[in-house]
Design a protein around this nucleic acid. Structure first.
Lengths: 189, 189
DNA sequence: GGTAGTAGCCTAGCCACGTTAGGCAAACCA
DNA sequence: TGGTTTGCCTAACGTGGCTAGGCTACTACC
């Protein structure tokens, strides 16, 4: 019985990679156990249950995405920052569809508060500094931005844009133009 | 063996209602069979398999939503139409989270082409007539609109807006203002 | 360097779910 | 009235989630 050397970290990483390959819905404890050449039951020594595993993948993804966004944002402001943020976001989602899907699961408040989601919120607000919006417009703008990004990426990955010839890239670029325009000229209440 | 009177239509409707109550992920063939007081295997006389069932729920939802949107849109134009469309969309998604989730599954091209998704596309483009956009801006604007709606509703239902005191309703209303503004003044390429 | 503890893995076993195959009975139709 | 179809059944197999309890390899400490 040579030990397989399973750790929570390796499990989470493997689960994330598996999710990107075969979809989050198909990431099962059993499949993960096979990947490590170990019996299913053995994994429960490292994780509480399947949901626990999914939450770990979500937290991993949140952290990775926050890192990428932060790197993309460095030294930029205004529309430059907006576009950098947006592209980093979309790029991550497309490269890591499984991880991105995991990010959408509903974290309980404490977990969410301790996650990299907080960094996301801070960075999103940082972008808006270039547009000089004050509350509550700022919150509304943050929500609209996030909605647009998530909505676009989500529809794109589920094939929502396949029915029209125009490329998603082109529409994305123009959507960012539009977003910049409306943030620059936010309508009065 | 009194016959339970199961039909594809009743199955689909029950699955949709079950989805709204307990979430699409928890709608299983077994649960549905229990609901009809029938054995699991019996349902395979009416549906091909579980995926088939989910597709049927998605098509049902697409049709229902298209009906509601069409009703909301009747006799309206411009921002009025935009807001009516958006509210009908969000309202449906919130009242029927399970059905809405089902709508996101990836339909194969033929099924999609025969679905009410086509009516959605037509209605969305109809709204844009009030904003006098020509191609390819129109396609980009349609995609941005849809992204914003879907993204907002999706984030709202997964609890993405819980971390800030401002109500989702307020942000929604302002997001529609912003969308109207940018559609009225679509940036040049 | 022996030995106690514990960490890491295993087998066995349970339950839920998806799906197929084949059987029987109720409803319909001639 | 008898045959056909339709609707449901039981039986069975495979996959997956999870728990309980046991064995073994490493670790630490005397």
């Amino acid at each position: 019985m040579a030990r397989a050397g399973v750790t929570v970290e390796r499990l989470t990483l493997a689960a994330a990679e598996l999710a990107d390959e075969i979809g989050m819905a198909n990431v099962t404890v059993a499949a993960l156990a096979r990947h490590f050449g170990v019996k299913d039951a053995s994994l429960y020594f490292h994780i509480r249950n399947g949901q626990d595993l999914r939450v770990r993948v979500a937290l991993l993804a949140l952290g990775e995405l926050a890192d990428r966004v932060a790197a993309a944002l460095a030294g930029r402001a205004g529309k430059d920052a907006l576009v950098a943020f947006a592209n980093a976001y979309r790029d991550y989602a497309r490269r890591h569809p499984g991880r991105y899907a995991a990010m959408q699961i509903d974290l309980d408040p404490e977990t969410a508060a301790a996650s990299a989601g907080v960094r996301h919120a801070e960075m999103t607000r940082a972008i808006l500094r270039g547009y000089r919006l004050s509350e509550p417009d700022q919150t509304d703008a943050v929500r609209m931005m996030h909605s647009t990004f998530h909505g676009f990426v989500s529809l794109e990955t589920t094939g929502g844009f396949r029915h029209t010839p125009r490329t998603a890239d082109d529409s994305w670029s123009r959507t960012l133009d539009a977003l910049d325009a409306v943030l620059s000229n936010w309508p009065p209440a």
